[in-house]
Amino acid sequence: MRDSDADIAIDVLNKLIDQELKAASAGMRDGNRILEECASTRYHAYTFARDEIRKALADAVEERDARNPFQCQRDELVTQDMHTCDLCGRWCPSPVYRVCLCYADQSRVASDVCADCMWRLGFRPVGTVPLEAYRRYERWVSEHPTGRRG
């Protein structure tokens, strides 16, 4: 189910919840116990369905993010920039990746690739080095200049 489909389903359930709440209130006000009970039962059923849809969507997002190492992880700080993915054309939040796609003598550089495309195309995350270790390496390189490496 796409996000827009889920949003439509939740909006419809919210409208039904409002209608049933009004019907239950009218039944209570008019003394019509049967209308009040039926509307109250439907109200609770719709509320339960809406909450289950929301919970399922949240679980699906967490499951997708757990499998995709390119998605930002929980509590990871990222910018809120929006980019257009060069491969799928969808709007995507940061982080985006820069890749070079090569085949035979043809190549293309994609500067904004979303995490979903990185996962779909089978890229593997590169091992990261802690910033402090990288700074130590840079210091070591600057302290030990050599004319030739290898």
Rank of each mutant, 00 (worst) to 15 (best):
W140R: 10
A133Y: 13
Y134T: 15
R124I: 14
K15W: 10
D81K: 00
H144W: 04
R29P: 00
F48V: 12
L57G: 00
A56C: 12
E36P: 00
A23S: 03
D5R: 10
C92M: 04
C114G: 02
Y134D: 13
V78A: 08
V126G: 05
R50T: 06
V141R: 15
I17D: 09
L35M: 02
D112N: 01
A104C: 10
V109E: 08
L87A: 10
I10R: 07
D75P: 00
L16C: 11
F48T: 06
R149C: 08
C117V: 08
D30E: 03
D65V: 08
D18C: 05
A66K: 12
C85S: 07
A115D: 09
I10L: 12
F48P: 00
T84Y: 03
V78Y: 01
H83S: 06
E76N: 10
P125I: 15
L35N: 00
R54F: 07
T79I: 13
H144V: 05
S40F: 05
A110P: 04
F48Q: 09
E62P: 01
I34F: 05
R135W: 04
G31W: 01
V99R: 09
V61T: 13
D86V: 03
E132F: 08
L21S: 04
S40V: 00
P145E: 03
R98Q: 12
Q80I: 05
D65I: 13
A23T: 06
L13V: 08
L35Q: 02
E52K: 12
M28I: 07
S4I: 11
L35K: 03
Y103P: 03
M28H: 03
R50D: 00
Q80Y: 07
R124E: 15
C85L: 02
K15N: 07
R67F: 05
D5A: 15
N68V: 11
I34V: 05
A60V: 09
A39V: 12
H44K: 14
D105T: 15
Q19K: 07
Y43M: 09
A6P: 01
C92W: 02
P95Y: 06
G150P: 14
L16K: 09
Q80W: 05
C100Y: 09
C114Y: 09
A133I: 11
L131M: 14
E76Q: 14
E138P: 00
I34Q: 02
N14M: 14
R98T: 13
D59K: 12
D81E: 04
Y46W: 01
V141I: 11
G27E: 00
D81P: 00
D81S: 11
S107V: 07
D59P: 07
W119Y: 07
W91D: 13
P93C: 13
R108N: 13
T79A: 01
E76A: 10
T146F: 08
L77A: 12
R2K: 15
V78F: 02
C100A: 10
D3L: 10
V141H: 08
A104K: 10
A60E: 15
Q106Y: 07
P130R: 15
S25F: 01
A39H: 02
Y46L: 02
D11T: 15
V78E: 00
E76C: 03
R74G: 05
A23I: 02
R54G: 13
R42S: 02
C100E: 08
W91V: 14
A60K: 11
V61H: 08
W119E: 05
A60F: 09
A45C: 06
